[in-house]
Design a protein around this nucleic acid. Structure first.
Length: 545
RNA sequence: GCGCCCGUAGCUCAGUGGAUAGAGCGCUCGCCUCCGGAGCGAGAGGUCGCAGGUUCAAAUCCUGCCGGGCGCGCCA
């Protein structure tokens, strides 16, 4: 294992360098198979970073973890030189690293040298990724539930892009089939002053559509439905735009239909029974076979979806991520089976299931019923709590847990609301930098920070340490498809900036014997990290509030 | 009955193998001659649903139960 090799390479990620040194020392002590972790201990007494390397080496070397830790600590200390204050062996065999101010300042300088791109490309390997989300029947305005999909899919796409992937965002429009027919019938009924069919659409917007379409009462049903879809889609685009959600591609089910026969012909296990056409999905572990064409001759949603995915597959993405609602989880198995039948690699087709959203007001649940037409529209939510709060709250929780949005809290522009807390921290930094003046900031950024005599305040070290986490946080958020982690990260960063602000004076640092340039540099780095985090979440990062 | 998701502080939830389990809200008590008080600090509050198992180490992995949500159509 070449030693100093890895560490001499310039990297925009100081932690990656530290990790490389650790990996080098560990490999030299063992056979290279151990993959040590570099952790941030919660306890300040356990150092700035810690590693489990010795405990991993113990079974390999047949020695006690603590004895190995002693030796490994020494060689690691040699590698790190002046970057490390001391290396301690603790507990069952942890190695705790206490970094020097010099290391912190060097790391800070690297963060700043990365400009606005700190953490960019953290994925390492770039893939061409398709993210399909929000896809829904274009038979009504976009709801809060779809809003969660939209916020999630968009933030995920932003994060994937930032860490280095080539992302395409796609909206699949189910503009064909029975639901659309019922939609057309519903519009016609309203146009004629009748009540829509039982299984039709009863929302008030249907009446508005009927009024907006000339001759709706007499129009051909298919044409009427198509006109309705057109108007709904227009509204959907407007809402998504307002919600800062960008789509690269709208795929229409209508366009998929002509390809269905050809695609189904490529599948094994298609057979006729009871006047219908089936796919033998049980051959691949499904509990029952699935209908492709009903005995009345109509295609099922499944059949059309297979053709849609065949098209997606043919487009040759490295990875396709589809975001579906919780009520669709029963379809995962059969769709994956079909994907494989089509020759797709199962590892390159992911389905993310979004759990439901509930709105609460003063502790009570806001009742939503699709049938009764009392579903809350995303637009209504945006009117109520604003785009920033809506994006934040809809993104705050993991996609696989049901989400409660406390409207009262989300609405309040007070100290209670986490999204304003983070934005406030960003604006506050902007205020400080403005107070310092452009020249001072420019000079600070041109300074060789490592030459500064500044003794970093513990709050400054904590904050810088947090900033250095960004590449890892982004990588985790991307790999785990977990944008919500970024809300937590942004909030922690804001909190730690607040502590830093409380503990040290930035403008006029000299008054207390400090180096203003270093402190300004910390501010600039923190501001960029907050701005980037907020941007990836689709939340504004205001200069003033 | 079967499948998927969830069960962590009063509430809403982070935390997918590491050392004394965290945040926000709510509650209690403090802090404005100070670069933005839309702020800051302190405190109370937890058998990580239960029981086994794997591991040097489990909220985290495995098994079985219990509780909640969502599905289980020739609907989409």
């Amino acid at each position: 294992m070449p030693e100093s090799r890895i560490t001499t390479e310039m990297s925009a990620d100081p932690l990656a360098q530290l990790r490389a040194d650790l990996a080098g020392a560990t490999a030299a002590a063992g056979d290279g198979s151990a993959e040590p972790r570099l952790d941030r201990p919660r306890q300040a007494g356990f150092g700035d970073y810690s590693t489990n390397a010795a405990m991993l080496l113990a079974p390999l070397l047949g020695d006690s973890p603590r004895a190995i830790a002693e030796r490994l600590g020494e060689s690691l200390g040699d590698r790190l030189g002046e970057h490390v204050e001391r290396v301690e062996v603790a507990g069952p065999g942890f190695l705790n690293l206490f970094m020097t101010d010099a290391w912190y300042l060097g790391a800070l300088a690297e963060v700043l040298a990365a400009g606005d791109g700190f953490g960019a490309g953290a994925a390492g390997r770039s893939e061409r990724v398709n993210v399909e989300f929000v896809s829904a029947n274009p038979t009504g305005p976009i709801t809060v539930a779809s809003g969660r999909h939209a916020a999630y899919g968009d933030a995920l796409a932003r994060i994937l892009e930032y860490v280095g992937h080539d992302v395409e965002r796609e909206f699949y429009v189910n503009d064909a089939g029975g639901q659309i027919q019922r939609f057309g019938q519903s519009i016609r009924a309203r146009a004629r002053g009748d009540t829509p069919p039982e299984d039709g659409y009863h929302g008030e917007y249907v009446t508005e559509l009927a009024a907006a379409i000339d001759g709706a009462a007499e129009m051909d049903l298919d044409e009427l439905a198509a006109r309705g879809v057109e108007l709904i889609l227009e509204g959907v685009r407007t809402t998504l735009d307002r919600f800062r959600v960008r789509m690269d591609r709208y795929s229409l089910e209508h366009d998929v239909h002509p390809t269905v026969d050809e695609v189904l012909g490529r599948l094994d296990g298609v057979y006729d029974s009871d006047g219908a056409t089936w796919l033998r999905t049980t051959a691949h572990g499904d509990d029952k076979d699935r209908v492709l064409r009903r005995s009345n001759g109509e295609l099922t949603y499944f059949a059309v979806d297979i053709a849609y995915h065949a098209d997606k597959l043919a487009r040759g993405y490295d990875r396709a991520i589809a975001i579906w609602g919780a009520d669709h989880h029963g379809h995962i198995k059969r769709m994956k089976i079909a994907w494989e039948e089509l020759g797709g690699d199962p590892d390159r087709f992911e389905i993310v299931i979004m759990q439901l959203v509930n709105l609460t007001e003063g502790g009570a649940r806001v009742q939503m019923s699709k049938r009764a037409g009392t579903v809350v529209r995303l637009d209504d939510l945006l009117d109520d709590i604003g785009v920033d709060a809506a994006r934040w709250f809809l993104l705050q929780r993991s996609h696989d847990t049901t989400l409660d949005v406390d409207l009262e809290l989300a609405r309040s522009q007070s100290q209670d609301n986490p999204v304003y807390y983070v934005q406030y921290a960003h604006a506050r930094i902007a205020g400080i930098l403005a107070k310092a003046g452009e020249d001072a900031v420019r000079r600070a950024l041109a300074t060789d920070l490592t030459a500064s005599p500044e003794q970093l305040h513990p709050s400054a070290r904590t904050l810088v340490k947090r900033l250095l986490d960004m590449p890892d946080e982004l990588r985790d958020a991307a790999e785990r498809r977990a944008p919500h982690r970024l809300t937590a990260y942004a909030h922690e960063t804001a909190q730690e900036f607040s502590a830093f602000y409380r503990d040290v004076k930035v403008v006029g640092a000299a008054d207390e014997g400090g180096d203003e340039a270093v402190r300004l540099a910390v501010c600039v780095a923190a501001k960029r990290v907050l701005a980037r985090s907020l941007d990836l979440l689709g939340v504004a990062a205001p200069e003033s509030m």
